[in-house]
């Protein structure tokens, strides 16, 4: 069930990328895509009936059914990468605003299309 939600989120993100012209909105759409992706990754590791993969005083037996911890580690990396990319994108957006005084991709000039 949650996987369908994540796929819908990814599609919303891509839809946003397809139709948005405002730079900030594109970055937001990109983030929605990444959120959907991260949720999907975590959901892959789910084992029904499993508990969090941490040895605590309550769950101290290592033979219990644990949720797969690897995807959770992957997601941490992915979130950080997404953070870095978003920061860079916002920096570039700031530079574009300084140069062209507009946040609309269509209005910003640049090399002619052909």
């Amino acid at each position: 069930m949650i996987q369908y939600v994540s796929i819908v989120l990814m599609l919303i993100g891509i839809y946003g990328l397809l139709i948005d012209r405002n730079i900030i909105k594109i970055i937001v759409a990109l983030n929605i895509f990444e959120v959907g992706l991260n949720i999907f990754i975590v959901s892959v590791g789910f084992v029904s009936g499993g508990v969090a993969p941490i040895l605590t005083s309550v769950n101290s037996n290592s033979a219990l059914i644990y949720v797969d911890p690897l995807p959770q580690a992957l997601v941490l990396t992915s979130i950080v990468i997404g953070l870095g990319t978003t920061a860079l994108a916002l920096a570039i957006a700031r530079k574009m605003y300084n140069a062209y005084n507009s946040l609309d991709l269509d209005e910003i000039g640049g090399m002619d299309n052909d």
Partner: peptide
């Protein structure tokens, strides 16, 4: 200093890597 192209590159690269991860 042509930021529009860098931005394009960034968006496309991130989407691509995201799909790779998927």
């Amino acid at each position: 200093k042509k930021y529009k192209y860098s931005f394009n590159y960034l968006i496309l690269g991130t989407i691509g890597s995201g799909l790779y991860l998927f």
